[in-house]
Amino acid sequence: MLDLTHESFYREHHSWLTSWLRGRLGQCSDRAADFAQDTFMRILQAGSQPPELLQPRSYLATIARGLLVDHFRRQDQERAYLAELALLPEALQPSPEERAILLETIFTIDRMLEGLGPKVRQAFLLAQLEGRDYASIAAELGVSVSSVKKYMQKAILQCLMCL
């Protein structure tokens, strides 16, 4: 439920944020409205009053920008996944339900590895998804086997912390 502080913050900035988002989404009003709502929901889910800000629009733009980045990254992952599936023979194609589960798993793994460096992420994915040994990963990444071991420790720790 909105209290007066949230409600006034919403009323004061919603129109501006929707317009700002429309400019970044190619004038798509519906998507801009959805992202604006998601932005304000993030603030509500934080469970506190909207912060007293000198530049509230900058604050809103930062939250909205993060939502856009997440959205476009998910789209890229989905496109890459579907492109790989297209290479499979029809008999090996997963069902729509399996596709949805696999895509959600990919998104979950991506969130778990968020914030790790590219080599750490790549080492982890090569080991876990392709079953590669540390020596071949080290050769591909141009690092030592001990670096790969450190990367794996870091990635596994990150995954455990997310669980």
Rank of each mutant, 00 (worst) to 15 (best):
E114M: 13
D76R: 14
I101H: 13
L126G: 03
Q45N: 15
L141M: 09
R73M: 13
Q128L: 00
A46V: 04
F124G: 06
L67H: 10
I106W: 07
P96L: 04
P56T: 00
L116N: 03
L68H: 13
I43V: 14
L92F: 00
R99T: 13
E84L: 11
V143Q: 03
I137R: 07
Q55I: 02
L60M: 09
A36Q: 07
G142Y: 11
F72A: 06
A86V: 04
L85I: 12
L102S: 15
T62A: 13
E84I: 03
I137L: 09
A139M: 11
E52W: 06
A127G: 01
L87Y: 00
A46L: 10
F124L: 09
F107L: 15
M41H: 11
S136M: 10
L113A: 11
Q93T: 12
R99I: 12
P51R: 05
Q37K: 08
P50D: 00
G115K: 07
Q45K: 15
I137Q: 06
A36P: 05
L125C: 10
A100R: 15
K119D: 13
E98A: 15
L129V: 07
D38A: 13
Q77R: 15
R57V: 01
L68D: 13
A36I: 03
A100C: 11
L102F: 09
A127L: 06
T105I: 09
L126V: 01
L92I: 05
R42D: 11
K119T: 07
L126A: 11
I43T: 04
I63P: 08
A135N: 06
P96F: 04
A123P: 02
L60T: 06
A127Y: 01
A123Y: 02
L88I: 01
F107T: 10
Q75C: 14
S144I: 05
R121L: 01
S144W: 00
E98N: 11
G131E: 04
H71F: 13
A86W: 00
R99V: 13
L103N: 02
R74G: 02
A135Q: 13
I137V: 12
I63Q: 09
M112P: 07
A86K: 14
L88P: 02
I137M: 08
R42Y: 00
A139K: 15
Q49Y: 01
E104W: 00
A83M: 08
